[in-house]
Amino acid sequence: MTSKRILLICRKAPYGNALARETAEIALAAGAFDQELAIAFIGDGVWQLLDQQDSADIQQKNHQKLLSAFELYGISESYAESAALAERNIDHSRLSLAAKPVNQQQLADLFEQADILLTV
């Protein structure tokens, strides 16, 4: 069986609703079953990457901690949309996950290369 290349596209900010967390959990499930998976953060999804998150006072699990488990789940390929980072004035030094900054052309290429696309 040839392995299919999955690309998860995250475009939601964390905490406001459950979508960011559920998408990350899909990534972990795929990683746990050794699927070939990459994850791209675009638009408001790049907010997920900010460091210094502390959600204890809103009684939610910390999204930054969840993303930090990616490495152990074998997910090492992640991308962040450069224009989205720039629009939000997010410096690379603030990214908790080592996501590779990519422009929109590169993202479009990644979308083309994937066998399975999942956008949330």
């Binding site: 746990a32 699990k61 910390n62 930090s68 488990a69 152990l72 789940y73 074998g74």
Partner: peptide, 15 residues
């Protein structure tokens, strides 16, 4: 405590 997550087998072995 580190990840607020119960690990699956593969990441547990790695950890």
């Amino acid at each position: 405590r580190e990840f607020e997550l119960s690990p699956a087998m593969r990441p547990l072995v790695k950890y």
